[in-house]
Amino acid sequence: MTTSEHPHGHDHGESSELSETELRVRALQTILIDKGYTDAAALDAIVEAYEQKIGPHIGARVVARAWTDPAFRQALLADATAAVSPFGQGGRVGENLVAVENTPERHNMVVCTLCSCYPWDVLGLPPVWYKSFAYRSRTVKEPRSVLREFGVTLPERTEIRVWDSTAEVRYLVLPMRPAGTDGWSEEKLATLVTRDSMVGTGLPRSPEPRS
């Protein structure tokens, strides 16, 4: 059975798969840790120091395109996996991806219980807080206060919708285009799109006021 025949995630029975390279990396890691050459926490600390530097980070370009090209925006909201795939440079990206659009009426936030459910091939590696129990549990219960802690205060009338990622579906938040960016190019707009704005824990940067 293939996932494309079951786009709604009816493949819970499928086993996991690791690529040949991932198998080799895990084999080596296990041996190094078992023999005491290093420990998991030390390796994690090094990887986390680069969390912003892992993955192709194509999400910002996808968002900027959606802001400037209404047809692309439609396509993205209709089928994000298909819309995003041309952005990948070799290798599949955005598998089982769903884009959710922020509006003045609704703000979207994404949580997940497993880091594997983060669209790292679009957004890079998940930040440490994304994997924390506190973020996962509190976002579902009190999204507005979690947002405030991230420095985002939304009008009371804005509904907050929380999306729980699964292995089958990952989410990309399409933030609202900042005011004061009329006539901006796609490249320039992409510089305003932060990772957090695509997870829903932040908003895009505001354009620098002209001096």
């Binding site: 690529s19 390279t21 991932e22 990396v25 080596l28 890691q29 190094l32 290093t38 390796l43 090094i46 990887v47 680069y50 530097k53 892992i54 993955g55 192709p56 790292w120 590696l125």
Partner: peptide
């Protein structure tokens, strides 16, 4: 910079 997580893991080791 790393294209995939395993690359960062190999670098870390």
């Amino acid at each position: 910079v790393f294209r995939e997580p395993w690359q960062a893991q190999a670098f870390a080791m």
